[in-house]
């Protein structure tokens, strides 16, 4: 209540001051950012919405012809595009569930006091701070069929991870899990440390078993933060481009972002790629909407 009062208050008496009024400062501080984002994010999207109804090709000199909804109709009826979406879904499921399991598992292990805990936690977080393109590149060294350390360590002989159509998507997902399990771990650790100690003490007094305590106390209290991690990672995995593009050229790893890139910048099928971009965009916005609603809910707690 007091904060509202001060806000109104400071807006109500700008005139008596030297310099800019509060209203002026507010506008000066906020409007440039909003304009910048409109010019460089929203305007391009409107621009490409226009192109999505044409047969425009950025490599040809021909003017764009209006083709109505043909691009959208063709895309939605194209089995290959659906195959790309299926690959993307598979990738999202494998890699996000892997990240959740590994990340939460690591958090459970770390959730106690031991020497050098801070250092160990930070070391474990390193992968997620790295460039996905460069991570993909050096995992190619690790996955090499003839001299990679992964095959050597696991005794797999010359198993070709990345050039095997069935294994490639898993190989990329494993790399993604390595990279992003630390993210889930970081969030889970915050969730775990927020569980009040007295609940565990009470459970111990009641002689509750470890599994029972975990299922009835730990899990429900950490669930909201795990859900944030899940939605955020799903959204990011759905957009995956770098890591898959660098690691494999197999058709079985062609996630939707790679399909879009090839259509736009290799086949120069600009009009149709704009339409595909819109289909992807709508899906991403749907996930984002869920995410932000959820973030706000958690923030209110």
């Amino acid at each position: 209540m007091t904060s509202v009062a001060t806000k109104m208050d400071s807006l109500a008496r700008p005139a008596q001051r030297r310099g800019l009024s509060d209203l002026g400062i507010r506008n000066l501080f906020i409007i440039p950012t909003v304009l910048f984002l409109i010019v460089f994010n929203i305007f391009p999207l409107i621009y490409s919405l226009g192109y999505s109804f044409t047969d425009f090709s950025a490599s040809a000199n021909a003017p764009a012809n209006f083709v109505g909804l043909r691009n959208y109709r063709e895309l939605l009826g194209d089995e290959n595009i659906w195959a790309n979406f299926v690959i993307t879904a598979k990738y999202v499921i494998i890699s996000v569930s892997g990240q959740m399991i590994v990340g939460f598992g690591l958090a459970l292990l770390l959730n106690r006091t031991f020497p050098m805990k801070g250092l160990v936690t930070t070391l474990l977080l390193l992968p997620m701070m790295m460039s996905a393109a460069v991570v993909g590149l050096f995992w190619k060294l690790l996955y090499d069929p003839s001299w990679g350390i992964i095959n050597y360590a696991l005794g797999l002989g010359d198993f070709a991870w990345l050039s095997n159509p069935d294994a490639a998507l898993f190989a990329i997902a494993i790399t993604d899990i390595w990279m992003w399990a630390p993210f889930v771990m970081l969030l889970s650790l915050a969730g775990l440390s927020a569980v009040p100690k007295y609940l565990y003490e009470a459970a111990a007094i009641d002689r509750a078993g470890t599994w029972y305590t975990f299922r009835r106390i730990t899990l429900p209290l950490v669930a909201p933060i795990l859900l944030i991690a899940l939605i955020f990672r799903t959204m990011e995995a759905f957009k995956t481009f770098d890591i898959a593009y660098i690691m494999s050229t197999q058709p079985t790893t062609e996630v939707i972002a790679i399909r879009l890139y090839k259509q736009a910048f290799q086949q120069w099928d600009t009009g149709k790629s704009c339409a595909l971009a819109y289909i992807v965009l709508i899906m991403v916005l749907a996930i984002t909407n869920i995410y932000v609603k959820y973030l706000n809910k958690v923030k209110e707690r």
Binding site: T33, L37, P44, S48, A58, M235, L260, A264, L281, V284
Partner: peptide, 22 residues
């Protein structure tokens, strides 16, 4: 407004890249 600002971050780079490239 804050949601709008956040949503610009969520746009897939490739989607924005096509019109920006043109």
């Amino acid at each position: 407004l804050l949601f709008f600002i956040l949503s610009t971050r969520m746009l897939p780079p490739i989607v924005v890249a096509i019109p920006m490239f043109l």
